[in-house]
Design a binder for these strands. Sequence first.
DNA 1: TTGAAAGCGATACCAT
DNA 2: ATGGTATCGCTTTCAA
Lengths: 342, 342
Amino acid sequence: MTSDMINSLTLEMVAEKAGVSRSTVSRVVNNHPNVREDVRERVLMIIKETGYRPHPAARSLASHRTHVIGLVIPRSTHTFFTDPYFPALTEGVAEACNLHDYTLSLFLIKTEEDERRLVPRLIGKGFVDGLIIQATHLGDNFLPQLSKGNVPFLVAGRPMNAPEANFIDVDNVGGAFDAVLHLIQCGRKKIATVTCALNTSVGVDRFEGYKKALYAYGIPMDEKLIFEGEFTEQSGYKAAKNILPFSPDAIFVGSDTMALGVIRAIKEIGLEIPKDISIVGFDDLPPAIQVEPPLTTIRQPVRRFGAKAVETLLDIAEQAAGIPRHIILGTELIVRGSSVYR
Amino acid sequence: MTSDMINSLTLEMVAEKAGVSRSTVSRVVNNHPNVREDVRERVLMIIKETGYRPHPAARSLASHRTHVIGLVIPRSTHTFFTDPYFPALTEGVAEACNLHDYTLSLFLIKTEEDERRLVPRLIGKGFVDGLIIQATHLGDNFLPQLSKGNVPFLVAGRPMNAPEANFIDVDNVGGAFDAVLHLIQCGRKKIATVTCALNTSVGVDRFEGYKKALYAYGIPMDEKLIFEGEFTEQSGYKAAKNILPFSPDAIFVGSDTMALGVIRAIKEIGLEIPKDISIVGFDDLPPAIQVEPPLTTIRQPVRRFGAKAVETLLDIAEQAAGIPRHIILGTELIVRGSSVYR
DNA sequence: TTGAAAGCGATACCAT
DNA sequence: ATGGTATCGCTTTCAA
């Protein structure tokens, strides 16, 4: 038996060997209930012996399902490998796909050109069973375009301009609140923040949490202690440079990656963390434990996020037109060396 | 016209509207030369008007091509989002796929279980047109298994135990040589190295370059100045802790990520970079410019790597059985603040 | 529970 | 240059 034969095996041939019709083999392959047990076993035997694999294209042509999920990361120009969040998300989704026997296709949309070429294919029938769209750098017309197609999709992260879309997100407001609350409990009085880009929902929501916490504890907000970053280490560094002259005793930074930059800036002017100033980040990705001191931060359940995203998407795909889903996963404060001084 | 209709449009319907046969429409769609110019234009018009898209499954069932490339990252348990190299590679490949109108499917193999389930599907006909296999954590029986199938594949990185396989790699030996040469030219005499895991070809090759450079300049090798890391920041830190007591005046570190750890360790004992000790890394990924001082390193052409990988793979897929390809891309020394002291 | 047969939507060969 | 048609390998009614 050559390796060529292994692959050109068809349902029909298996059926013949098993002495049944191809319908029956198909039922066995698809775990249909209506097959006599001994027949099922016989067919299963032959399948195992021959190494038969159904042909994906034939299958999806006939069944109208591809068993493929697309993960779309729009405008990922310099972020995909600059911020570990994206690989982490990708990993989570990939893992969940493996688990459900789905294939993950990855679409990194970097240019307008990419978008023009890709979107029409994405929303065409028979390309993928569903899409997970990373929300951060979503343009204004991206989701509307998607909605014109009939491919089910789920936004990963709260979309700014499409409250009706299905989405899954972490509790950014709550997480940020916890972060700032922690700083307050550390005895800090002058708490600054470096926000994520404020044209993104992560930026807005984490900033919201910051404001809420200050408000809840009667701490007045000081514009001079607020600076907008844009997700990169460099922007964190720059933001810190702007904030430090006003001598805050704590900084809540919107992401771990930016916190790296903040810490770099603080060390540069010779302040000690957490003695002189406390730092809390957000994400809890690997960099958080690769700095000195290790970073207190808000942990996102990246793996659970991916899994839940895939499951929800598959669920949406099954329902003809269900209720909109807005799923929020909780976060967790992880206390390390960068915040508590004693 | 409902959005439903957009997607259920078939070749046949387009053919009817255009008053030609579906063969002709198919030719137009596939850029076949044998179509009269005015007919082509008329068909193209109708396609644009109707928004017709060929059905991928139907297409690949009939043509035996999927227009999908698989990127496989074996045993990526804690590396995929720990070392920015993997996202960078992924990005490069994704970009190239976009360019060639191919879809990228991502397979992260983390467990033995994943491997058992995935490999048979991967090598089955009709799943992908070709595979790019990341070499670093390749088990011994991975490539042999792949070879049993008839899916063309290309290894990204030199595979340790399969010299006959097609692969593409960067010149790790040459790059490491240049790195160490640079340190020698900086006047350093006692040059240590933190290697990548030595059961990987990156590890072996970069170490080889280190040895070659020392040899070329008559510098004796000192076992005490050599320590094996395992790609992570933490392992770099640990390695440096072991090496620093022997007071080297330079360290060539096998990857930027590990160099981050090395620098952390050096700062901890109060040495100054590059005054007391010079550091050179390898990769030139974002972290390289997020440390103080910025890291001198060997730049890999990640983007070009991805592009070349995809092109080569597609090329292999076209040839029935061509000569084995072993492609090596050059590297470039990027001098920043961590090496030259004056 | 099983089998027969009609699609699924394209490609590609063979005529013309 | 164009059209007719067999074919790709499976799913899914519909009958039996």
